[in-house]
Design a binder for these strands. Structure first.
Lengths: 327, 327
DNA sequence: CTGAAAGCGCTTACAG
DNA sequence: CTGAAAGCGCTTACAG
């Protein structure tokens, strides 16, 4: 005896051809009497179709999601939201973790296309010409999340607007000596646009004394860079950090050196992590709505798979969260 | 022209049968000359096999991972480690997110088996009779992670030993009025065994004044329960929390009420989250090695899929992290 | 509305 | 070592 029942078992029990069962499963018209018998057989066998056996189907009902890692503050929220949305539409999500390996990311586009997925969501950190080539080479729709994809569809945080709001706020508090604790410009969305936004906001209010410090996305690097910055008596009045995590490094370094936030040093972040409320004082930061972004990505990729028109570029709004970390 | 090259294209170009290509791909003996020509064709087409087309293969080289959600402190670390291990062995991980829906969890065991996966790792929160039935009904090996599975293979934290160590430490600091801020006993590993361990440690040192308070895994609940506890002047000297997140709630409530940690109140956690170093004072807690657990799970399920013998139960060690939250 | 047949891309005995 | 054929579980034109 086979371990699992197949469409043949159901067909045999219902007394119809398996093609009829297939039609029934896919919501195509079937005589009422057949439907009844098929459903009976399905119930009897606890039958459920093997999603991966639809090799010759036009639609696989599978969406591939390429991500640079599971380990970040927003990724789990994004994945949860995408997963939920897709399952509600009876699509199966297929996650590919690239561990931020760009070459693997590019290859995954091809692999997923070959697996006949109906669409791909790529959570991007950096879009290279190789990405563009890979996307152009497949007919599978691809949406980029988090970074702008010039020759295709992308859904991203409105970093420019959010940064500008933050820049105006900082200037509005009378702070004029500003330090940017930022990530590399390789990251367009965060490394360039987010910073550009803050700069615009500052400049609009006449603040031009700006210094730049390079960090990366890790807490450790932020901590050690912050230590150096803060030891300098001529340090900036406010450290604008590219992410909350970087701001955490500043908090720690400030504490080590006996500097009080915000009296001796102001700090801001980007992220709006839940853990912020544990900080003393709470961090002033910008929060992007990851869930909305995720849902829009999923929605958009499904639309594309049906050939419906979609916007080239969609921007997700932000929330300004005023903590107590700016004097 | 087809969009993707298939095994037929490669076979044609190499001038061999596709069965020969298949053998080559699967590392079975092939004449050197054939191998050379096949590899050439593969390179030419950038061919890569479609993992999901191996419907009639004995081994699919796919491992299913059933998890209750992406959103927890340890899950991303666990997923990253499993993913990495499996890919290194050229297995494809297939993640099923159940959002803690036990019925869906049970059904997923069947779905994955039907998809012909070589093994299943189930990140468990609660094992029901339905789980046991589902596992018994499939020949696919299943390992449970995080909860003990009496009738099968499980890999879990050594909560009993870790709890005991913490209990002895607390008693050793001279604290005698203890409060447990815990989660429901529905969770055997955390709700029962972890607490049992602490109790043993305390009792071994003569501490018996113990009160119990019920919370859950969320920060919000912990916060509101902690507020009530701490308002009582007759409150415990130390709050032993089932997780770090719960301890965070206590920190917050203590701050609101003007209680100093550890002078006015001692607190401990379980978890060893990275964010702990931001707390003032750092939290005294127990850390389990999620990466080790993940790797052992993956290793074990692969062994089982090869029919090799494995232990029924494997316990992961712990690290005691002394912070400054115990007087 | 339905069945027989061919096909999706791969693997697996079975001869040779 | 290799090829022709059958098969995995499903879907899809194509007749009827």
């Amino acid at each position: 005896m086979k371990e699992h029942s197949t469409i043949d078992d159901v067909a045999a029990m219902a007394g119809v051809a398996k093609s009829t069962v297939s039609r029934y499963l896919n919501g195509k018209p079937v005589r009422e009497e057949s439907a009844r018998r098929i459903q009976q057989a399905i119930d009897h066998y606890h039958y459920e179709a093997n999603v991966f056996a639809r090799l010759s189907a036009k639609q696989s009902h599978i969406i591939g999601i390429i991500l640079p890692g599971f380990d970040s503050v927003t990724t789990p929220r994004v994945l949860t939201a995408i997963d939920k949305y897709l399952r509600a539409k009876s699509y199966t999500p297929l996650f590919i973790n690239t561990e931020a390996d760009l070459a693997y990311e590019v290859r995954s586009i091809g692999s997923l296309a070959r697996m006949n997925v109906d669409g791909i969501i790529l959570v991007a950190t950096c879009i290279t010409p190789a990405h563009e080539k890979a996307v152009a080479a497949v007919k599978t729709p691809v949406v980029f999340m988090g970074q702008e994809f010039a020759s295709g569809v992308s859904i991203l945080d409105d970093n420019l607007a959010a940064g500008e709001a933050l820049g105006r706020y900082i200037a509005g508090r009378g702070l004029s000596r500003v330090g940017f604790l930022w990530v590399s410009e390789d990251d367009i969305a965060v490394g360039q646009q987010r910073k550009e936004g803050v700069l615009r906001g500052l400049q609009a209010c006449g603040v031009t004394d700006v210094r730049n410090y390079l960090a990366d996305f890790t807490y450790q690097t932020a901590l050690s860079v912050a230590r150096n910055i803060l030891r300098d008596p001529d340090r900036p009045e406010v450290l604008v950090c590219a992410t909350d995590r970087i701001a955490y490094g500043v908090y720690k370094a400030a504490r080590e050196l006996g500097l009080r936030i915000p009296q001796d040093l102001s700090v801001t972040g980007f992220g709006g992590y839940e853990t912020n409320e544990l900080l003393i004082p709470p961090l002033t930061t910008i929060r992007f709505d990851a869930e909305t972004q995720a849902v829009i990505c999923a929605e958009t990729v499904l639309k594309m798979s049906r050939g419906e028109p979609v916007s080239q570029k969609q921007l997700i709004g932000y929330h300004f969260l005023e903590g107590g970390s700016v004097r």
